[in-house]
Design a protein around this nucleic acid. Structure first.
Lengths: 197, 197
DNA sequence: CTAAACATACCATTCGTCCGGTATCTATGA
DNA sequence: TCATAGATACCGGACGAATGGTATGTTTAG
């Protein structure tokens, strides 16, 4: 198996392939199937090649995590820019991202991240730190109880789809999404927080 | 280490200890730390003792899963019996269970379940089947969109606490819980829920 | 005594990591 | 322009530690 040895060298391509394959394997075959060998083979290199790009397996996992967070950050940022209403802007962007992931292919990536989060305590802190910082930054516009509920429900939808439980999302997912977005808007009149439509 | 060897034999006690320690280790040190040796040692027996009670590691995990589902089932059932209002009864019981788990010690058990769910596809189906059946049974009383949101948000809270993100639950968890329970009640007037099936 | 409830020793496999070696790329200088 | 020297990219096997599982011995309960 000396194909990759004699071919044109493409370090960044290989590196991306390693991250991608690690995520794909974790999502499809479980976290236990993510081994140095399997990831390297899937990416078309050998163990030595993998260890050239990542010092250890943990560094590889961290890399997957970092890439996933960067993608989410970018996605949230883009959606927030296109939203003229400041109130609940972050929550709307977050909810949209969660629902968008469900249909996107890179949901696989986040499934892998989630599995890793469960297994590794250090990764939990990385994620927790990112989210807490984000939340603190938008505390003034997204600090209402309805915002928390909308975000949490979006998390719930996303987790449910991870477990393969589409039914939990209720009869109509689009209606659910619309309802959550609606919850992020400022109450129309009076301080009555109970909803009406 | 021949403590368990010379002590009075208590098979059911040992069996329960094995399940409990497996769950505790998964929750505290990650799923990867759940090994035959570590679980057996934590339970005060050796591998031979463990394999006497469980044919394989998978059987042990399945046992943890079965016990957890049985406990949840019982908990939900008890809460539903004490609820006079049929509308949204299941959702209220479910939400209460999720929040109760956070303060309870056996939340550890469910953290382990969740980690296993991520890693094992066959366990995902077990859980999905249970929940889908439950949901179908109470479709008439708990089929509204608000019910789905309340359940999903409760799931989100629970997952967030798993990740060590208490902040995501908003400023006041009790207020959040009260708000979700409130969502399960029938709307005060104009029964237009825009949703029925 | 018999079977259940454990302990102990052992095996085959797998995994993460390391490392010497080889091939390719790139900068440099004449 | 072209040789060359270092740096980078990658190969492929060795090795120890750990793991799931087995086979067998030993103690306890009824």
């Amino acid at each position: 198996m000396s194909e990759a040895h004699t071919r044109r060298k493409q370090p960044d391509v290989v590196r991306r392939a390693l991250l991608q394959e690690a995520a794909r394997i974790a999502a499809n075959e479980g976290l236990a199937a993510v081994t140095i060998d399997s990831v390297a083979k899937a990416a078309g290199v050998t163990k030595g090649g993998l260890f050239h790009h990542f010092q250890s397996k943990q560094a590889l996992i961290d890399g997957v995590m970092a890439e996933a967070i960067a993608l989410l950050e970018e996605d949230v940022e883009r959606r927030m820019e296109g939203d003229p209403e400041p109130y609940g802007r972050f929550t709307r962007a977050y909810v949209d991202c969660m629902f968008a992931d469900l249909e996107r292919e890179d949901a696989r990536l986040w499934a892998a991240i989630c599995a890793s989060l469960m297994a590794d305590a250090s990764l939990r802190k990385t994620w927790s730190d990112w989210f807490t910082a984000r939340l603190a930054r938008h505390a003034e516009t997204d600090g209402a109880l309805e915002h928390a509920i909308a975000r949490l429900a979006a998390d719930g939808v996303w987790h449910a789809s991870l477990y393969g439980m589409e039914a939990e999302c209720g009869p109509d997912r689009n209606a659910l999404r619309g309802r959550l977005i609606e919850m992020t808007r400022r109450p129309a009149m009076s301080e009555n927080t109970s909803e009406d439509r």
